[in-house]
């Protein structure tokens, strides 16, 4: 474990806490894409298949349980909770997320480290996580003004994989035989998708104005 990866994990956890706070306290999911939340639940479900078979550390297991639990409860809140579901912006959250699932699965079948069920699903979860934010970014551009909590949620979500990129560079130079081409490619694509969001996020923060993404 290094400081970059720990910061990345905590930033990821922060993004989920910001989202849960928004949904749980003000009972609203306005501006949040259910499609992206469903994709994240699928990402964790296919990535943490070995949660009960491979023990790495208490931290690792606890964090996996937190990510699984929070991602599924967010989907539940947005689909089932009597008040929260009313604020779901169904008309603008229309990105066909299965258009992302299928290509990621096909790519995982072709481009993986080992052709086993678990490895293909794990690789699928990496590819899917890289593009899972797209429905959310599309929704942000469609919803006129972005509230602070949603903006902060997307910011922390983008920052976490950015810290992972630094972690991979650090591990590449400090651990011999640390080669993760597939992980690195997916991580670079994932972070690159946030670049324009980061630009507008910092610009709005510098000019102290409301965050608005150009359509």
């Amino acid at each position: 474990m290094n400081i970059f990866r720990l910061t990345g994990d905590l930033t990821h956890l922060m993004s989920i806490i910001v989202l849960l706070l928004k949904i749980h306290t003000i009972k609203s999911c306005a501006g949040i894409s259910l499609k992206t939340q469903e994709l994240y639940a699928l990402v964790f479900a296919t990535r943490y298949l070995d949660i009960f078979t491979t023990y790495i550390s208490l931290y690792n297991t606890v964090m996996k349980l937190i990510f699984l639990g929070t991602s599924f409860s967010i989907v539940w809140y947005m689909r089932r909770h009597k008040t929260v579901r009313l604020s779901y912006d169904k008309n603008n959250d229309t990105f066909r997320h299965y258009f992302l699932v299928l290509p990621c699965f096909l790519l995982a079948l072709v481009l993986n480290n080992r052709f086993t069920v678990r490895e293909v699903l794990w690789t699928f979860s990496l590819y899917l996580e890289a593009v899972a934010i797209i429905p959310q970014l599309v929704l942000l551009q469609r919803s006129k003004n972005v509230d602070n909590l949603t903006g902060n949620y997307v910011f922390f979500l983008g920052a976490y994989r950015g810290f992972y990129l630094i972690n991979w560079i650090y591990r590449y130079f400090t651990e011999n035989h640390y080669r993760r081409w597939i992980t690195w490619m997916a991580g670079i694509v994932q972070t690159a998708l946030y670049v324009d969001f980061f630009y507008y996020y910092f610009k709005s923060w510098k000019n102290n104005e409301k965050l608005k993404l150009p359509a």
Binding site: D9, T54, N60, M63, F67, W122, N167, Y178, R180
Partner: peptide
């Protein structure tokens, strides 16, 4: 923990 082919990351 030992890296299980890179699976020691979340």
């Amino acid at each position: 923990g030992r890296s299980h082919e890179g699976k020691d990351e979340l």
